[in-house]
């Protein structure tokens, strides 16, 4: 089981969290001409690396905050957890 250190609540078990996917994906900017390719990149295309992956999780059975986690997708080691508005 993963043990995730929520930046708001401390170390909790994986059961309290739900996964939100790749945190490096950026929504195209508002009020700007957006190409189909930009939507494609945002909605569908993912790098899905083997190794370090920055991802979104929600502490759904805790503080309900969205957080960012840098985790290894091969070993499941967690390197760093950040608040939702923090950058790596």
């Amino acid at each position: 089981m993963l043990h995730i250190k929520c930046p708001h609540c401390g170390l909790r078990s994986q059961n309290e969290f739900s996964y939100g996917g790749d945190a490096t994906v950026k929504r195209p900017a508002l009020n700007k001409e957006i190409s189909n390719q930009e939507w494609d990149n945002f909605v569908y295309l993912r790098k899905s690396p083997r190794g370090k992956h920055l991802e979104l999780w929600q502490h759904i059975s805790g503080c309900r905050q969205w957080i960012k986690i840098e985790r290894d997708t091969l070993t499941h080691e967690i390197f760093k957890t950040l608040k939702g508005n923090e950058e790596l």
Binding site: G21, Y44, K47, S48, P49, R50
Partner: peptide, 18 residues
């Protein structure tokens, strides 16, 4: 499951996650 690992070597990004 290793599709993305090889796609990266080809500079391709795919609508696939492992």
């Amino acid at each position: 499951g290793s599709t993305n690992v090889l796609a990266e070597k080809l500079n391709m990004t795919l609508p696939v996650e492992t």
